[in-house]
Amino acid sequence: MNINATLIGQLIAFAVFVWFCMKYVWPPLLAAIEERQKKIADGLEASDRAEKDLELAQQKATEKLKEAKAQAAEIIEQAKKRANQLVDEETQRGHAEREKIITQGYAEIEAERNRAKEELRKQVAALAVAGAQQILQREIDAQAQNDIVEKLVAEL
């Protein structure tokens, strides 16, 4: 139990062990622990952030959905309006077309009638001339009496 040179040997050994531990054992292990702690903290933070992001995204999606619904309703409304408008326009145009066709028809009929009238008048004139020839029992120079016939025709 006496104190001897062992003391010196142990002191040196102790110093060397502490030095080795300080240099090669402690720093890498503590660095690994701290690095992992940081990693875990980051991971937790990221998960928190993701959760918040998700909530936000959900909110946004709901908003977008609402907006889209409103927009769709608006579009449908507009389309309906437009359709009604189109139908109205078409109807009006149809009416106009009908009117036009009818007017045209009338005009054609009128023209036809005028033509027929003219024809009829001419025939009547010819008939009248023939009648007058027979009545007068004589040859009448058709050429000479043409002006009279013309007058007759115009009076018809």
Binding site: F20, C21, Y24, V25, P28, L29, A32
Partner: peptide, 14 residues
Amino acid sequence: FLWLFRSAAKKATT
């Protein structure tokens, strides 16, 4: 002691 802990330190992974 140093060998045991050094072996852990060398292979220390985060």
